[in-house]
Design a protein around this nucleic acid. Sequence first.
DNA 1: ATGACTGTATTATTAATAATAGTACAGTTA
DNA 2: TAACTGTACTATTATTAATAATACAGTCAT
Lengths: 128, 128
Amino acid sequence: MFELDVRSRKPIYEQLTDKIKEMILYSILQPDEQLPSVRTLSAQLTVNPNTIQKAYRELEREGYIYSRAGKGSFVSPAQQGMNAAKRAEVREELLRLMAEAVYLGFTAAEIGELFKLALEKKGEGDQT
Amino acid sequence: MFELDVRSRKPIYEQLTDKIKEMILYSILQPDEQLPSVRTLSAQLTVNPNTIQKAYRELEREGYIYSRAGKGSFVSPAQQGMNAAKRAEVREELLRLMAEAVYLGFTAAEIGELFKLALEKKGEGDQT
DNA sequence: ATGACTGTATTATTAATAATAGTACAGTTA
DNA sequence: TAACTGTACTATTATTAATAATACAGTCAT
């Protein structure tokens, strides 16, 4: 499914949440698609099951996946009014990063390009 | 100068680098302006000097400040061709965040607004 | 040149967190 | 019932953040 960098300063469970989130954002994982079970992924990545569970718990807390005991973990359908709090959070982070971009000389055009690219990346995975 | 959240999951030295970086990006701190000394800031924030030093060292590594033994620490003038590597890094991070924004339904117009806002925030502090 | 500032480096200790290990229990389904 | 699922808990180890206490060298005004 993907690789981990065990000697990164970034915790393993965080690398996991980031990569799975990315696959959801880019529609590589479709809504209601089942994720590998905690134990399966644990074995594949040779990582402790608790670490996988921690990542899944975090993804569920953020609303990206949902889990059902006995059934498995699944990608959440992107809800329309998805969490005003989360939108505000992303807005905040975007503003911070844009400030850095401005400082580095990024232009409005370049930013627009990036947004278009993100749109495309999402589109690629949809209904194919 | 600012406040810290000692019981945040985010390390103190990282809160420091983030806030100082922000003040530089927003031109609240001007190029070549002197930062508080390690010991002064340490006393003001009641934080260990080593923690301040760690933050300053990181800021210097990233090119935002420069330090001279005996003189002090100062804001770096924003270099024009500032580090292609850093630009690539910010681009990467922006793309990731934009993907999340797309997922949450942000429009191109909203993104444009944010960029304008970042431009203004930088402008505010300049030559006043 | 001395005193009072600067940054920098080092070592040791404590506190907090990430990751592992092992086990247990409950829901789902063929 | 068997074999999967997620979930919870306790304990242990490894890593990192933060503190503490010194020490040393550069700058500069007196």
